[in-house]
Amino acid sequence: MANDKTSMQLISRGILSENPIFKLALSMCPAVGISTTVINGLMLGVAVLFVQVFSSVTISLFKNKIHPRIRIPTYTLTIATWVTVIDLALAAYLPDAYARMGIFVKLIVAFAIITMRLEMFACKESVNDSFWDGLGMGLGFMVGMVVIGFVRELLGSGAIFGYDVLGFKPLLFFILPSAGFFVVGLMMAFFNWIELAYKRTKGKI
């Protein structure tokens, strides 16, 4: 089954038209839970990117060997293996960041987005395309996390990457854990608004 998209198209699809967080609304837990700063979002984004790319490539490599009836358990175990790798690596080399992210690194194993990409893409397409698709989806997730983290950190503590840029704290509320729901909800509404406005100018509505 040939794939007619180029690598760049695959990446841009993951970031824009099928963004895991804002468009597909999958893997919301970390987006709400730990996106209080840009660094946290970036770190978890990198971890997810790693797991997504390597799982996609692994499944794509072995796609002819996997019996269709046991494909879901196979995906789960593949993902679990790569999550263990990144979990141990982070715990060893970046213990501070690992402590901040807490249980969420281990929970990457249950992220619906990764299983979904394996089921819909990697088990049918070539290794090369699966790599780019995984990269696109992982980047899309990372961008989503960083954007939410950016908004929350800027509004909540007036800082970016831990550096004070505003000099005051506009809305301390945004750094509270429960504000994650509000930020994600408002941003989704914002993207919907842009889309509606765009369609209206084109005269489609």
Binding site: S178, A179, F181, G185, L196
Partner: peptide, 21 residues
């Protein structure tokens, strides 16, 4: 219309989260 569906559900969940605090 911009809030229909998921966005408003997230806002409601945020209010529940604050109540559970």
């Amino acid at each position: 219309p911009t809030f229909k569906g998921l966005p408003i559900a997230f806002i409601v969940a945020g209010q529940f989260a604050m109540a559970f605090l």
